[in-house]
Design a protein around this nucleic acid. Structure first.
Lengths: 309, 309
DNA sequence: CCATCTATTCTGTCCTGGACAAATAATTTG
DNA sequence: CAAATTATTTGTCCAGGACAGAATAGATGG
């Protein structure tokens, strides 16, 4: 009746808020000496808000590839330094224009200007055409937004606003492009736990533009249902996307399960920021497309293959 | 290298696919004698597809309010009987028209006819107007789709297709309605773990129609970020939605945490199918709106309150 | 000096089995 | 029959140990 006022979170709440599993939270406590939460009278953990914030920061850095032992027990100062400096550098060679555009968009986001954001994005789409827009503007832009968030320059809700605006734009484009008779028939979704859906929306736009028939299932479809949907829609290809946040270890088992459940004549293509980390992994019957261009290329290969048969 | 071919799932995969936590899966095993998975050579659980399917069915029934002891160890037959018969009956008194419409939509879904679905929904929207459409067509329709899925008449991917179509429709409507200067300023989202976003989209449409200014953050925003977003957008109200799937026990703690983090002058309204179960719960500073009409009403109350001050 | 291979640490996940409180059902009492 | 007690059910939490796959450092060879 009164602990409504205490700013401590249960371990379940911390898992919810940070994305770190209960097991991990407990292990870190013994291994690295952080976080060490308070306890309630039944001995259950209560994490003060301060520790939760730190955990959030640590999670970011780990998602970027830094190892826990380097940071979990690190001093507050070093942590924020790393947050600023780190960031696996992507191949970024922007011209002046693109850079300007990015800073404009980021400014609109910070100003909570949804309407202006939408207009600016749409104008850019018209200026460059959909393909160029998606590949050279939207993809780096999305990356930059994630980057800005990681540096603490953007709140997560500002990133959400960005996501909403882009979704709206792409959905409209895709709808107007949709061809019932296009080939190949491509089914797009993400696995349960993966909520980042912008990637599949972007490739869906590209595929549609090039005359494919896209079926988007949204995010978080269980493997079994993906298999059934692929059957029902007579899909030629299933496309999945994995972000940096998706637990790396889960990818391969999930893919081999899917590979086994859908027939042999349906291809699987995977992409997203979480994929490049698997550079040395080999999965029979699964195509890795770390870059969006590669997915597009895969589609062209598919077509020429089909032509020969 | 070879278990690629085995149809067994790890406990993590089962948690992902069914939504039942690892702890629950292990407890049921000892308490009810089901599920009893195989073990790999390290003694880790491997669930055959058969057991996973049963777990999915059981999860459905539990979400509808049946207690585990009644069904977890129940015979296969009884289970499917219950699946057909059960279903907490909502107050449904549909006229002939509405019923026809529902069966048309369900048929379109089964036929994977995305285009037709979109057209039919849009026509209905134009015919009845947005408010009537959302309250009397879309809300029961959404319920009916969930119901059909629970009865096994609809695959989950068909439900996803429905969701995509409705989202597209509502997003367009909301965008065209958006008023930068509207009051109250309403922020809508769901908590992490809650992926059902149609509810907030529907109320957002209603609120916008009645001149409010809606800020939608999409789904799954951590509590702290909701609080920050509410500040940044100078929101008057935060609206959250909870589906049947959201763990009932988590609602109250999360709400009181939110209540504490955002200032006292921001209202909290909650709705969704998961809310009626809390009939006897009382939370200071939180308004429960089991029905969408009540949310709309809350807005009118808010306005008259504001007028007096 | 770079590349490939091997040994070693790191790290997340899984295991058992026990405890407890909130939710629900069953019972008693007014 | 309603309200208040008591009993049962059920999900979550805890400790602490084990293990395999990933990452890293070190060794070997070209």
């Amino acid at each position: 009746m009164e602990n409504t006022l205490s700013p401590e979170l249960s371990i379940a709440a911390v898992e919810r808020e940070t994305g770190l599993s209960k097991d991990v939270l407990r292990k870190w406590e013994t291994r690295y000496g952080f976080p060490v939460p308070l306890r309630d009278k039944q001995g259950e953990r209560l994490y003060p808000a301060e520790q939760v914030n730190r955990l959030r920061l640590i999670k970011r850095l780990i998602d970027e590839g830094i190892r826990p032992s380097r940071i979990v027990a690190e001093s507050e100062q070093r942590l924020s330094e790393m947050a600023l400096s780190s960031r696996s550098k992507p191949p970024r060679e922007l011209n002046q224009n693109a850079e300007d555009f990015e800073s404009i968009i980021l400014a609109l986001l910070r100003g909570q200007n949804m309407e202006g954001l939408r207009q600016r994005l749409y104008r850019e789409l018209l200026r460059h055409g959909l393909e160029h827009f998606v590949l050279d503007t939207l993809a780096p832009m999305t990356y930059a937004v994630g980057e800005a968030w990681a540096r603490g320059e953007l709140d997560i809700h500002e990133e959400h606003v960005y996501t909403e605006a882009v979704q709206w734009l792409l959905r409209n484009a895709i709808t107007n492009l949709s061809e019932a008779e296009g080939t190949p028939r491509i089914l797009l979704t993400t696995l349960p736990g993966e909520q980042h859906g912008l990637g599949i929306l972007m490739v869906a736009a590209l595929f549609s533009l090039h005359g494919a028939h896209c079926i988007s299932l949204g995010t978080q479809t269980p493997v079994q249902d993906i298999a059934r949907a692929a059957q029902a829609h007579a899909a030629d290809v299933v496309v999945l996307s994995f972000s940096l946040v998706y637990p790396q270890r889960g990818i391969q088992p999930a893919l081999s399960e899917l590979r086994q459940q859908i027939g042999d004549n349906i291809e699987i293509w995977v992409g997203g920021a979480g994929i490049p980390r698997l550079h040395n992994a080999k999965m029979p019957g699964v195509q890795f497309c770390p870059l969006m261009e590669q997915a597009l290329n895969a589609m062209h290969v598919w077509r020429s293959m089909k032509l020969k048969c």
